[in-house]
Design a protein around this nucleic acid. Structure first.
Lengths: 233, 233
DNA sequence: CTAGATAATACTTTATTCATAATTATGAGC
DNA sequence: GCTCATAATTATGAATAAAGTATTATCTAG
């Protein structure tokens, strides 16, 4: 894919990646103002590459640039989530459909192997590890779909979804439920039931949205103070 | 991405928009090298805002940044088109589905009014005007879907598709065929046949891909350069 | 005491300058 | 005469500086 881009990555890309991680970790929470010069001297670079990195992040939707006002981490509304999850269901559903049709027996075996950690970490109750294994499985499916642009679009939306806290898996029973959905999905794929796999993937995503909504409903949305960057050392 | 920028847009955004138009007009054709300093002094600005604009365009996929090598207008391969069009069919199909279900009678009337120019310009054989009217109709449908992120993703992909020449409508009979497809689509929407509208929209997009393929097959019987363009994020 | 206006401060934005890396051209050697 | 290596030129990438705009705080007037 990246034919000539094997050369050393530009500084602004490195910075963009580091900022992404800090945003995903909620070290830079949604709504937080991004202090350019503080961040620049923290990274030991000038503000120029930092600003270029912010342009990239803005195009990805992770931050919002307000002209003459500065840069803020994007805040997702419930409305946004209600828009994005069905869209992801559509796209990842298509992935499941295509992958079911195109996967070779060897690839099917690899996919099955990727499912095993899900079983293990669900049994162990390790939500973080389950989350990672879940991501790996979904990514593999996207790879098997064979459509680079489909994968790209899903990846972009997933980045945006990472703005929300990932603790929906800690909802009572959600881990087990998600595992059950994955079992059904894998079974449909292995049975070469493309339409079934698509439907199960869609249900899986929408079920994830429902879990998130339950979390948000439970947490009191009274005060959401958008604090600035938390100091950590 | 999208902020409520009622204030004056930043210079780099203006530059990005002007470059977009030049790219879409093929004044900067796919594969063309973008000369930063030449363009900067042509616009009477410094290289800094120009470079920031290029970062935005790179995130949109319109240009490809090769570290230490410069910036080039993205070239789409046939493979890319084979990936993107089915994806657009899926997304715009969903738009048609949702819009059919959600549109009020008044909105339905407005949509019907937007269809009229298509009839007129098809009869007049004005491919450019037909293209514009077609875009307007599709955008209205995306608006009616009520899903801002769906609209956003479609818009992003449409930008990329604008990298290709828009002369597929000049293919013998394509104008008439496209009109027929639109008639069927509108009829399904007005009949509140959401599934039918979705199917017709999907067929419409795939039909557009086929027309483009026919153009390319006719124009390039010799060697295809097929520079593959990788997307990064 | 409150509200509005002005001034000051701070941050974004753009420009200019400098350094580094890549490519091309020229010269020399085989 | 052709190929390879080295040097020079050009363009990209980063940093620093300067300017313009927005926001906030303070002071004055009603």
């Amino acid at each position: 894919m990246n034919s000539l881009n094997i050369s050393q990555p530009a500084l602004y890309q490195e910075v963009a990646e580091r900022l992404r991680l800090r945003i995903f970790a909620h070290e830079l929470p949604p709504g937080a103002w991004i202090d350019e010069q503080a961040l620049a001297e923290q990274y030991g670079i000038s503000r120029t590459p930092l600003r270029e990195a912010l342009k990239v992040l803005a195009a990805e939707g992770l931050v919002t640039l307000k002209p003459r006002r500065g840069c803020y981490v994007t805040e997702l509304s419930e409305r946004d989530l209600d828009d994005i999850f069905p869209l992801m269901a559509l796209l990842e559903g298509r992935c499941a459909f295509e992958a079911t049709q195109k996967a070779s027996p060897a690839e099917l075996a690899r996919l099955t192997a990727l499912h095993e950690p899900l079983e293990r970490h669900a049994a162990g109750g390790d939500a973080n590890a389950f989350f990672e294994a879940n991501q790996a499985f979904h990514r593999a499916l996207q790879e098997l779909s064979g459509n680079r642009w489909l994968k790209q679009v899903i990846g972009d939306l997933r980045k945006v979804l990472n703005l929300t806290r990932r603790d929906s898996l800690r909802l009572e029973g959600r881990l087990k439920q998600s595992l059950e959905e994955h079992r059904g999905l894998l079974a449909a794929i292995r049975a070469r039931d493309a339409a079934g796999a698509e439907a199960r993937m869609q249900a899986h995503l929408l079920s994830g949205r429902a879990a998130l909504a339950k979390i948000h409903a439970a947490q009191i949305p009274s005060s959401s103070p958008s604090r600035n960057t938390a100091e950590e050392s």
